[in-house]
């Protein structure tokens, strides 16, 4: 890879100063590709922080258009974006933030037919979806391709996050083998504090950046749970389930 330009050295100076990052680490980020599935409450902070950090290639998958009720938490989108495809609204902000980043947009719902060809083009996948059916598809496809993926979820004042590293710890279905009962209320019924996906998405972005840099310890086998009301984080150690429908 060619050397960093003067502008890049300045833009990423606070990254480059970090122990274990340096110019070489920054080049790793610029060479990196992350697929962000969902451009809503979690996808907003994830994509913003990855773009700001200089991750070279971001893929955004989302079939929805921006709705007024999204704007309380989905900070990639603005009032003037209402009615626009979320991935296009997101791309505008991310490219404006950092022209180094190549933003590839997929205005579609992830399907069994598209998952492999999409995921195999990236180094790591960040789950910013709002349903377990898509999460399970991500989980199974990433296991098959040997790609790490970072689960995140939010509900009301709570959130949780875990990194799935194929072959090195539990997968999502070791914890959640089945889809939830469709009658159990979610964020559309119970609400969600806008900053909660901000907290969880920021942790997901941190995990993705650490993975690309090869730094630190990832949340493998550690379900990190967050409660905004008591302002508490609690880590639950998870073992692989020998009866897991996906990875056993």
């Amino acid at each position: 890879m060619k050397e960093l330009t003067w502008e890049q050295q300045k833009r990423y100076q606070r990254n480059i100063l970090l122990p274990g990052v340096g110019i070489e680490g920054q080049k790793k980020l610029l060479r990196g590709g992350v697929l962000v599935v969902g451009a809503g409450g979690l996808g907003s902070p994830v994509a913003y922080y990855l773009a700001a950090a200089g991750v070279g290639r971001l893929g955004l998958v989302d079939a929805d258009v921006v709705d007024l009720s999204n704007l309380q938490r989905q900070i990639l989108h603005r009032t003037g974006d209402i009615g626009r495809p979320k991935v296009e609204s997101a791309r505008d902000k991310l490219v404006a933030l950092n022209p180094d980043v190549q933003v590839e947009v997929f205005p579609e719902r992830l399907s069994a037919a598209s998952a492999v060809s999409l995921i195999e083009r990236y180094d790591i996948v960040v789950d910013c979806t709002d349903n377990f059916a898509t999460r399970f598809l991500l989980n199974e496809t990433c296991l098959r391709l040997g790609k790490p993926f970072i689960y995140g979820g939010v509900l009301a004042f709570a959130g949780q996050v875990m990194t799935v590293m194929p072959g090195a710890g539990p997968c999502l279905r070791c914890i959640f083998p089945h889809e939830p009962d469709p009658h159990v209320p979610g964020c559309a019924e119970l609400g969600v504090l806008g900053a909660v996906p901000g907290v969880i998405g920021t942790i997901q972005a941190t995990e993705a950046i650490k993975y690309l840099l090869g730094l630190g310890d990832l949340l493998v086998g550690r379900l990190l749970t967050y409660d905004a009301l008591s302002m508490t984080f609690y880590e639950v150690s998870i073992d692989r389930d020998s009866g897991c429908p996906a990875c056993s």
Partner: peptide
């Protein structure tokens, strides 16, 4: 024993 609801929003 740890009990969780579906934390599935995004």
């Amino acid at each position: 024993v740890s009990l969780f609801p579906p934390v599935g929003g995004g």
